[in-house]
């Protein structure tokens, strides 16, 4: 989980200009000021990076970074990409 969480955080920092110092595992996407279009872009980026399918409907602005990393892990397990 921690490696996935770190990658999710890095995507937000590198691509969405989120301040690493203020983002925690409890921060929600709304806290990080990701609006609905950014969430679509974020979902597409997660798909590219992790090789899994994540529709934007699977993410909401109230999701925490911990929940996003958990979702990615779950999708990786379903796709047989992680144990």
């Amino acid at each position: 989980m921690s490696e996935t969480y770190e990658t999710v955080l890095s995507i937000l920092v590198d691509r969405f200009k989120v301040d690493r110092a203020t983002a925690t595992s409890d921060s929600t996407l709304a806290d990080l000021e990701l609006d609905s279009l950014f969430i679509v872009e974020f979902a597409l980026t997660l798909e590219d990076r992790f090789g899994v399918s994540i529709s934007e409907d699977a993410l909401s602005s109230s999701d925490t970074l911990f929940a996003v990393a958990e979702l990615v892990e779950q999708r990786r397990r379903e796709a047989g990409l992680a144990s």
Partner: peptide, 10 residues
Amino acid sequence: SGREVFRNAV
């Protein structure tokens, strides 16, 4: 519809 168009376009 911005959200749907974004994903479909990409």
